[in-house]
């Protein structure tokens, strides 16, 4: 038995979680493909960012720009517009293009040297939730915002709230890199028994360095399409799964055929909140 003990101790040490490189485990890379992310909404029109994919194991300093891409927008099979890149990868379309909430929208994306990608049908949410009430209270150091809205009667809607903070009428540094309409913060679901959904948030009125004071807030309420909410869920799960030995990786939802990415839709209500205690 005595001779067994050291061996047992060694074996116990070996019994643990491990991670090792697997250089021969090659991904299924099918070559460069169109990648598009973006949203359709009646409030903000078409906002798309088009890139090309890169090899999943060659991500460092990869160039994914795709300046020559062209996006064609269709409604019920009828071409509405051709959207070209603004030079930075964005493809914009005005809200007037999306006037018909009952229409079935689709996209075709063409890029030189790459297979074309398509997406659709995309339907806009038939109706978006609007704010019931929004208040801002506080003192010289903290702003406390309370917003409320009614859950849409058909049920099953998903919402996202976003607060933007401004100094001298401009987005604060933390927000400046993000466009309005970016989704991905707190997603609220129809989790309450009451149809009235209330949310409270607090913000420090000074920037972290203490040199600037916030002068206003803007709250945006997004009513997400079911597919967009599912995309956000899958993205969140995928992040959480990475490297978890007890989890199976979640594939992030993609709704582009012939390419990758996701184009969703939402309805938007927005309201400014200005402190009045100064």
């Amino acid at each position: 038995m005595k001779t067994l003990l050291p061996a047992l101790a060694l074996l116990l040490l070996a019994a643990c979680e491990f991670t090792r490189d697997a250089p021969h485990y090659d991904p299924l890379y099918a070559g460069d493909r169109v990648v598009a992310h973006g949203y359709l909404s009646q409030a903000e029109g078409v906002v798309l960012y088009v890139q090309k994919s890169v090899h999943p194991l060659q991500t460092l300093e990869a160039d994914a720009s795709l300046p020559g891409a062209v996006v064609e927008l269709f409604a019920d099979g009828r071409r509405l517009a051709t959207l070209r890149s603004d030079g930075a990868g964005f493809h914009h379309g005005p809200p007037s293009l999306l006037g018909d909430t009952a229409a079935s929208y689709s996209l075709q994306i063409h890029a030189p040297g790459l297979p074309s990608a398509s997406c659709g049908p995309i339907r806009l949410p038939a109706r978006g939730a609007t704010f019931h009430q929004a208040t801002l209270e506080g003192d010289s150091s903290e702003a406390r915002a309370r917003v409320s809205f009614y859950d849409l009667p058909q049920g099953g809607s998903r919402y996202s709230l976003r607060f933007s903070t401004f100094v001298d009428g401009l987005p604060t540094e933390a927000e400046a890199g993000q466009r309005e309409g970016y989704l991905g913060l707190s997603t609220i679901k129809d989790e309450l028994n009451s149809p009235l959904i209330v949310r409270d948030y607090a913000y420090g009125l000074e920037t972290p360095d203490g040199r600037q004071r916030l002068d206003s807030l803007r709250v945006k309420l997004f009513t997400l399409s079911a597919e967009l909410a599912l995309y956000m869920e899958s993205l969140s799960l995928n992040e959480g799964d990475a490297g978890d030995p007890f989890a199976t990786p979640t594939a992030v939802l993609s709704n582009l055929r012939g390419g990758y990415g996701f184009v969703g839709s939402y309805a938007l209500d927005s309201i400014p909140l200005v402190p009045d205690w100064e």
């Binding site: 991904p27 299924l28 992310h37």
Partner: peptide
Amino acid sequence: SLPEAYVPATPL
């Protein structure tokens, strides 16, 4: 489920 490709961050 394993990824087939990668894309860098964008504003969206």
